[in-house]
Simulated scan of single mutants.
Amino acid sequence: MDVKDLLTKGSHLFDQVHDLLWDMIIKGEIKPGERLKDSDWSVRLNLSRTPVREAMRKLQQEGVLLPLAAGGYQVRAVSNNDLSELYTCRAALESMATELASQRMKSQDLARLAETIYAADEAIDAEELDKAFALNSSFHKQILELADNGHLNFLSETLNKLVLFYRSALLNRVKSDPQLISAYQDRLRIKQDAHRAIVAAMVAGKHKEAGDLMREHVLLSITELTTQ
């Protein structure tokens, strides 16, 4: 299917173009380092340049596209230094969120977290990598929701756009090389153990310990992502 056929009349073209480009980047159809021009994409999508230009500007604001001096944009490359700085910030925010969530968690919240962990276990064993990826993200999102702090959530959402970008780049590399799948599954299982330890600390009322475990868990991802 041609990409222009994915656009509808149901919402603003600017939003649709943004979501289309973001989805293609996340899936690896537009790769890190690739150059984009609004003039080229307006022709490809059979649109005026305005919605395409605005969509690309938003992706720039989100840190996914970098402006080029000669015009147009380049998809951010997967830089180890940027990743390390990003995950250091993420670790601090999610540690705080976990401590708050631990203080506010109710039995139904525990059940939801447990279901997510169990479903992720099944997806990993079945080699359903996209599903396992989504469930891993869901676990962290549930923690942020339980924290119930609007400012913390806003800051985390800003970071998580780039977090998703980096994590997707790793997943796309794994999916392109079957030899990497087993090692990737092993790393996911280690993450699952960390999730279980975090929830166990929350259940035990060890709020600070839960936050510390989350910080360690996120920081360990730096080594994983920078050694690929």
Rank of each mutant, 00 (worst) to 15 (best):
M1Y: 10
V3Y: 14
L7M: 09
G10D: 13
F14E: 15
Q16E: 11
H18C: 00
H18Q: 05
D19K: 13
L20H: 10
L21I: 15
W22D: 00
P32R: 06
L36V: 04
L36H: 03
D40H: 14
S42G: 01
S42Q: 10
L45I: 06
L45S: 08
L47V: 02
S48P: 03
R49M: 09
A55H: 09
M56K: 04
M56C: 10
Q60S: 11
L65P: 07
L65I: 09
A70F: 05
G71E: 03
G71P: 01
G72P: 11
V78K: 04
S79M: 03
D82S: 12
E85M: 11
E85F: 09
Y87I: 00
Y87Q: 00
T88Y: 00
T88F: 00
M96G: 01
A97G: 02
A101C: 07
A101I: 06
Q108H: 15
D109R: 06
T116K: 01
A123V: 08
I124M: 07
A126T: 06
E127D: 13
E128V: 06
D130Q: 15
F133I: 01
A134C: 05
A134S: 14
L135A: 05
L135P: 03
S137C: 03
K141G: 07
Q142I: 15
L144P: 03
E145L: 14
D148P: 06
E157A: 08
N160L: 01
A169K: 06
A169W: 07
L170G: 00
N172V: 14
S176A: 15
D177Y: 04
Q179M: 09
A194N: 13
I198G: 07
I198T: 11
V199T: 12
V203T: 14
A204N: 13
G205V: 10
H207P: 04
V218Y: 02
I222R: 02
I222W: 01
E224A: 10
E224Q: 10
